[in-house]
């Protein structure tokens, strides 16, 4: 177990992504900086996508979900499996990834989470146990071998904003990164619509604000809990499906996203869903810019240290209306 921990640490998303496209040496510092900022946008997209599910399970339901990364991993494996067996386009597998992980999520809520409401530290331990189990099961089915998922052809290539006289791009972002950003924003929009404009969303908010009262008014709180958790897990599954094309699919891959997703949710605050947009933007861009000025590991250390300081002074997150308790 210890041996497997290190490679996954090394390929932590922030760390890896920033290295993939090194800032171009020479030329204008300005274009390099712009390129890095754009690179940061790609990271923001990934952070947003991976943190969105957690914003539901932790932010709304207050479940300390350490198995979040494993639901991302499940989504990636579903995509891999469908592509392998049915030669499906990556985009076509997304609904299946959503439904598959949501079903697993519902099952988990029914068997584990439900017994532990109101006991955050027990939930934390149980979900950690769950993450080990999910990794183990996936390893049994698919073996520990690295798997690769093809990105659709029409999403390859770069959008170039600035190029040098010879035509090689100076400020560019790949279509796929752009697609991730768009998908993340779209999902955020859909989720916000569901939460604030539909009766299901109203029920969820009612249950989180006052469970007893909601129950009295005829809301089936158990069903709402299960549905919300399943939805959060489904979102993680979508994240896994989309990200699977960017990096190799392997059982421990979820761990890479766990700490980052937590940092995003905690930075943004759990009061409003829109907070995670701000959280992922701050962390992603801060990481990209600091990495440009110094280097990648230092950037990660600085960002994590700032998040610690932030939690210390504002545990409720940056974008939360301060309440007196």
């Amino acid at each position: 177990m210890l041996d497997s921990a290190l490679p996954s640490m090394l390929s932590s998303p922030l760390y890896l992504l920033a290295q993939e496209e090194p800032a171009i040496e020479g030329g204008f510092q300005m274009t390099a900086l712009l390129n890095q900022a754009l690179n940061g946008v790609g990271i923001v997209g990934i952070l947003l996508l991976t943190a969105l599910g957690l914003a539901i399970t932790f932010g709304v339901m207050r479940i300390i979900n350490l198995a979040h990364g494993e639901f991302i991993m499940l989504g990636a494996y579903i995509t891999f499996w469908m592509q392998e067996n049915f030669q499906m386009d990556l985009l076509m597998t997304i609904p299946f990834a959503f439904i598959g992980t949501a079903l697993v999520g519902a099952l988990v809520e029914l068997t584990i989470i439900r017994r532990l409401y109101g006991r955050p530290l027990e939930t934390l331990l149980a979900t950690w146990g769950l993450s080990i189990v999910l990794q183990g099961v996936v390893k049994l089915i698919f073996t520990a071998q690295l798997k690769y998922v093809r990105a659709p052809d029409y999403l390859s290539g770069n959008v170039t904003f600035v190029s040098d006289p010879t035509g090689s791009p100076l400020v560019a972002i790949s279509y796929y990164r752009l697609f991730i950003v768009v998908a993340a924003l779209l999902l955020l929009g859909i989720t916000m619509y569901l939460f604030y404009k539909t009766s299901w969303g109203r029920q969820i908010r009612a249950v989180t604000q006052n469970r007893e009262m909601a129950k009295c008014l005829g809301v089936n709180t158990k069903l709402v809990d299960m549905g919300t958790f399943a939805y959060g897990c489904g979102l993680a599954g979508i994240a896994g499906a989309v990200i699977s094309a960017l990096k190799t699919v392997a059982p421990p891959m979820g761990q890479d996203y766990l700490v980052d997703a937590w940092m995003v949710v905690v930075t943004g605050g759990v009061d409003k869903l829109i907070g995670i947009l701000a959280g992922s933007f701050l962390i992603g861009e801060a990481n990209a810019i600091i990495a440009f000025i110094l280097n990648d590991p230092t950037a990660r250390v600085i960002v994590l240290a700032s998040v610690i300081v932030l939690i210390r002074y504002r545990p409720e997150g940056l974008f939360t209306v301060q309440k007196r308790t």
Partner: peptide, 12 residues
């Protein structure tokens, strides 16, 4: 590790 995970779940 799978065994440890199951054990942890059972204990919790």
């Amino acid at each position: 590790q799978l065994v440890v995970g199951v054990l942890l779940l059972i204990v919790v």
